[in-house]
């Protein structure tokens, strides 16, 4: 690992000032960043440790749930407020990584984690995300784990986060701080598609940091489910995952939220499928129809075309679990 300078930020203001300088990165849990630094994928000159900032709290507000950016994944997943108000988030978090990693990883860090595309990680391979302009090794390479939605001719990598899929489904808002103060953006607009700039994973500007997320209160707690399909039962990245949340009244769907992981460069919210579910009976037939709508525009590559069948099947299954039919 390249040598770097290490400093501790004792105030949010000093952290923001420090990260405005090029070559400087924030470190929180470090579970992804240290790995990337060991492999030479990234080599910052300076790390700013923000773990001493007061951003760990999980609190109920008048309109929802506020979670500080430094709250640990393990703590959030077992927090009583989260379990009571947003069990889907807890399920998504528990589906990710290992207990040890969840004890280190933070909410903000989870949002910032990079793709696990093997061409991104292997510094001897071409990768437009790691080294813009070098090409995409995955496009015609081993692309079994890769995207089927929103790809560009530059990049077909997927966002690896489970937590973010849950937060995207739950209409969360990302709270971001910079020199000019705080701004709030919908979680679904935090991450971006690769387009012509696959090196950018999200819309965070230079000198900005995540300070928290907020989830508005909803009526999904009774009927929500996170289903993750992967190569082994635990501790593996998703081939396809689905966050499903329903509000059901007398067997009819009043409201629905759906998002998919492992299929795009960002958590893939299924707005059209959600609309199609509203007013329908909470049955397998309704779920299958919604799943077909969700797949519009999907495109498979040589080794990941199986996702074109796996994804709708996972959506249907997740909705059945959410509705209590499985």
């Amino acid at each position: 690992m390249k040598q770097f300078q290490y400093t501790r930020a004792l105030t949010q203001q000093s952290a923001i000032e420090a990260i405005a300088k090029p070559g400087t990165k924030i470190i929180a849990g470090g579970t992804n960043l240290i790995d990337l630094m060991k492999r030479g994928v990234t080599a910052p000159d300076k790390l700013v440790d923000i773990n001493h900032l007061p951003l760990k709290n999980i609190t109920a507000t008048k309109t929802g749930l506020h979670i500080g950016a430094l709250a640990l994944n393990s703590v959030v997943s077992e927090n009583s407020l989260v379990l009571q108000k947003q069990p889907l988030l807890s399920m998504a978090l528990k589906a990710g990584a290992s207990p040890q990693l969840r004890n280190m990883a933070t909410v903000g860090g989870n949002m910032m984690q990079r793709t696990r595309c093997s061409y991104f990680y292997d510094t001897t391979m071409p990768c437009n995300k790691r080294a813009p302009g070098t090409g995409c090794g995955a496009m015609e390479g081993i692309n079994r784990m890769h995207a089927i939605f929103g790809t560009s001719d530059q990049c077909i990598a997927v966002n690896p986060s489970d937590m973010s899929v849950g937060l995207a489904a739950l209409d969360a808002v990302a709270i971001i701080a910079g020199k000019k103060g705080e701004r709030r953006i919908p979680f679904t607009e935090f991450h971006r598609l690769p387009g012509d700039h696959p090196e950018l994973d999200n819309h965070l500007a230079a000198g900005e940091m995540i300070v928290g997320v907020e989830i508005p209160d909803n009526n999904f707690a009774k009927n929500s489910y996170y289903l993750k399909v992967r190569d082994r039962q635990s501790y593996a990245f998703a081939l396809v995952s689905v966050a499903a949340a329903l509000e059901i009244s007398n067997g009819t769907i009043k409201n629905a939220r759906l998002a998919m992981g492992g299929v795009a460069h960002k958590p893939w919210r299924l707005f059209d499928a959600e609309k199609a579910l509203i007013g329908k009976p909470a049955t397998e037939d309704s779920f299958k129809q919604a799943a077909q709508i969700a797949m519009q525009g999907a495109k498979g590559y040589q080794y990941n075309s199986f996702k074109l069948k796996l994804a709708p099947a996972t959506i249907t299954e997740a909705l059945k679990h959410a509705a209590g039919l499985a």
Partner: peptide
């Protein structure tokens, strides 16, 4: 008291 991966923990932290 919490289990972590020491290979991904910086000593300074």
């Amino acid at each position: 008291g919490h289990r972590v991966n020491s290979c991904l923990t910086l000593g300074v932290m």
